[in-house]
Amino acid sequence: MHPIIKLVSQRLALGFLLLFGASALIFGLTEALPGDAAQAVLGQSATPEALANLREEMGLNRPAMTRYFEWLGGIVQGDLGQSLTNKLDIAESIGKRLGNTLFLACVAAIVSVPLAIFLGLLAVRYRNRWPDKLISGITLTTVSIPEFLIGYVVIYYVSVKLGWFSSLAMINDSMSFGQKLYAIALPAFVLTLVVLAQMMRMTRAAILNLMQSAYIETAELKGLSTFQVIARHAFPNAISPIVNVVMLNLAYLVVGVVVVEVVFVYPGMGQYLVDAVTKRDVPVVLACGVVFAAVYIGLNMVADIVSILANPRLRHPK
């Protein structure tokens, strides 16, 4: 078998194993919380009899292991269960909100990834001169300020003072694509600022590291321009570390948007999760946890696989 196929299938298997472990962890943690779904539904003033009845009805008296595998079985078949608060099918609610979150994350990624790599290349080209220092300074500043603060500052100046954008990033199905883009411009901007620094600095560091290589000297001694050397000779070898940090940030865009979504009241996964936690809607929390875990593990798996594919020694064995 080609070593690539072997390595990739190993990564896939490992990914599924990890996801399985994550689901057990999430289930276990919500089990460990005080109170259960019956308590949550009936509230603090419920009588012990009513609680016992509801527990019987919801099957909460059965051992945790049985319930876990039932729950897991449901997930495998795409059934995430029902919300406790509004009795709606969770899969359906999540589907729409995940779509919104992914839309926001994609827009932020489409802006930030090429920008970060370009800025990283630029910083290498003008290393230790003012463009490098300026880029590093600005990106480090933006990454150091908490995103909710950036969010509110942006809202205050851009929507309140200037009135260019709405402070609420509400979108719905009746809006056109352009209208949607306009609506999410501010949260996408904030997310871009948050993820830009790490990707840019990693690109810079990865390429600078490679610039010490003997083959970069060879390229310089061929009389290539600095930018040709970086783009043709350093960048292809930097793909693997760059892809890793890009994927980590993409995962952050999906999983870590909670705060930004809340600030801009955006109807995405983050809002949904925060709502569910306040209402102690355990099945929804569980479902969101699994979806987040799946996205995180999935993207990192992609990064791993791209790294494998980017390695010429594995792609073209002797």
């Binding site: 310089e220 001694l221 009389g223």
Partner: peptide
């Protein structure tokens, strides 16, 4: 002119070809 000199008029063979060839190309 220096760029035209390097790789045009004067070229270089290093001690370690293994390190001096770009592994990705």
């Amino acid at each position: 002119d220096v760029r035209n000199l390097r790789g045009g008029e004067v070229t270089y063979v290093s001690q370690s070809a293994a390190a001096s060839f770009n592994p990705a190309k």
